[in-house]
Design a protein around this nucleic acid. Sequence first.
DNA 1: GCTCTATATCGATGGATGTCAATATCCTCT
DNA 2: AGAGGATATTGACATCCATCGATATAGAGC
Lengths: 117, 117
Amino acid sequence: MSQTISLLPVTDVTACCSPLTRETLTAANADDLARSLKALADPTRLRLISIVAASEGQEACACDLTEPVGLSQPTVSHHLKVLVDAGFLSRTQRGTWAYFALVPGALDSVARLLVSA
Amino acid sequence: MSQTISLLPVTDVTACCSPLTRETLTAANADDLARSLKALADPTRLRLISIVAASEGQEACACDLTEPVGLSQPTVSHHLKVLVDAGFLSRTQRGTWAYFALVPGALDSVARLLVSA
DNA sequence: GCTCTATATCGATGGATGTCAATATCCTCT
DNA sequence: AGAGGATATTGACATCCATCGATATAGAGC
């Protein structure tokens, strides 16, 4: 299951195929990997991940993420959603606040696809 | 030198900073890394890298790259230029033909920035 | 229930990007 | 020099995307 759905947790993408440099990527695999990389390929989203990663328990409240990146609240909310949809962050609601945490291994698994060894 | 120029070989980007999850990225570092990832975040470019990597000596002629990806010659030429400018591929002219090769360590160094360990 | 605060969604907008056809450039060979 | 083939560049176009202000939703506490 879960092969041609367009919404693609990173863990599924990375389970699919050998590293980029080992054998030729199929069009479908290239599409999936590109989608994961696209989610990362934005300076604001990289900073958000970086801030979350540096926080206690690799988890941060959305309320603490808007100010450091210097963008509007809707924009930050949008970026967080992109990262959650891509499988890099998880979202937990606690009371009024939303907490975002690193999904363990998500970054590593996409990194593993890029590496040659 | 070479800190605020906008054209950014990957090797410079990756020399700059510790992994994404170790400490908070500055806006400038996030920008550089995002630019490298953007160059990778396209299915056609991933396939081109993959094909080059699977070729003899990790090098391929442009003439052999147009057909497999199924796009027009100008489009493929454009994608190759993006990858060369980003530092993932190198270009060598031999006679009428242009050969593209993997830049050793380029993919690895960007992967290393994503990984936590 | 009402208010206040936190977060998400909507709609619009400007800028970036992938693609192609047409054309230019460059190299080789006769 | 001229012709032919390989690659790059140009210009146009459609689509995607980051961003914002305005608004909706949802939870907490009175």
